[in-house]
Computed example of a mutant assay.
Amino acid sequence: MDVIYANSELICSTNASINKCSRYKGQKTLKKEVTVHKWIKVSLIVLSVCLVFAFGGVCTLAILLSHATPLAFFNSDFSVPVSDQDQNATDYKAQFDALRHQHEETLRKLNRLNYSTGCALCAVHWIHSGGKCYYFSKFKMNWTQSRDHCVCLGGHLVIINSKAEQDFVNSNVKVTHWIGLNDLETEGHWVWVNKQPVNDSVEFWIKRENGIREPDNWTKGHPDGEDCAGLGHPGGETDFWSDAFCSLEKRFVCEAPAAV
């Protein structure tokens, strides 16, 4: 019985050692697994941070490139952007010419239509007179802006070719208005917006009693002088022409062919 009891204790002791070793090995394996997972997690965090910084660098570079001046492109070896700009400019000009031709063709069709009906057609807010349509603005712009706005409306700044036309335009204004006359290209050589020079027999420059007449190209405060013409001046009558600084803001008169 004693032997059996001793053997039993030995067996129990042996089993306890095995269990203890098993628990130790299990704890060691778990510790290794936790350590590996921890390092994987840290590596992923570091990788994520690196990706964020890399993305930020790419975005910064894109912003800098988008705000780069044309000079930077000219000084570099990039020729494609310049070529693209030239191509775009050519395309825009072609589109503008096509629209202008379409507008002229539409006016010709309206002319033929209204010739048969005896009616004169002008756009809303335009006034018909002598085969033309006239637009008298209610707001002010400088001369260049006025010229461009008339083009956008389908016409041009008014070109006055007769005393009757001068009287008609004058009868519809009470303050100074821009007309389509300028000497921007050559001082003293006054031309209309269609590049035609003023007819000496049809000109209405103001003539003062002291012998001084318009255009006088006054340069006080404006070295470039007075290069654009308007009806009258801010403090006077409107039945004559006077030159003025093109940067001044005035009302303006547009004209376009009437559909008659």
Score class of each variant (00 low, 15 high):
residue 121 L to F: 15
residue 156 H to E: 15
residue 175 V to H: 04
residue 34 V to S: 10
residue 255 E to C: 05
residue 110 L to F: 05
residue 55 F to S: 12
residue 89 A to L: 14
residue 122 C to I: 03
residue 120 A to Q: 09
residue 121 L to A: 11
residue 203 E to W: 05
residue 109 K to T: 10
residue 3 V to R: 07
residue 15 N to E: 10
residue 228 C to D: 00
residue 6 A to S: 12
residue 13 S to W: 04
residue 253 V to A: 05
residue 143 W to T: 01
residue 98 A to T: 09
residue 189 H to L: 13
residue 247 S to T: 11
residue 65 L to C: 08
residue 93 K to S: 15
residue 205 W to S: 02
residue 71 L to A: 15
residue 66 S to T: 04
residue 210 N to P: 01
residue 84 D to P: 00
residue 161 N to H: 14
residue 12 C to R: 15
residue 79 S to L: 06
residue 74 F to Q: 11
residue 1 M to L: 12
residue 27 Q to H: 10
residue 196 Q to F: 07
residue 211 G to A: 05
residue 106 T to W: 03
residue 8 S to G: 14
residue 72 A to Q: 11
residue 227 D to Q: 11
residue 118 G to K: 01
residue 156 H to M: 13
residue 35 T to K: 12
residue 100 R to F: 12
residue 72 A to I: 00
residue 99 L to D: 05
residue 89 A to S: 14
residue 35 T to W: 05
residue 214 E to A: 14
residue 5 Y to A: 13
residue 58 V to H: 10
residue 87 Q to S: 13
residue 222 H to W: 01
residue 123 A to H: 06
residue 197 P to L: 06
residue 122 C to M: 08
residue 76 S to P: 06
residue 14 T to C: 10
residue 12 C to V: 13
residue 47 L to H: 07
residue 215 P to M: 07
residue 104 E to H: 03
residue 55 F to N: 12
residue 184 L to T: 05
residue 134 Y to I: 03
residue 249 E to D: 12
residue 203 E to R: 15
residue 119 C to L: 14
residue 88 N to P: 00
residue 168 F to S: 02
residue 121 L to P: 00
residue 64 L to M: 06
residue 175 V to W: 00
residue 92 Y to A: 14
residue 66 S to Y: 14
residue 136 F to H: 12
residue 12 C to F: 13
residue 173 V to R: 00
residue 164 A to M: 07
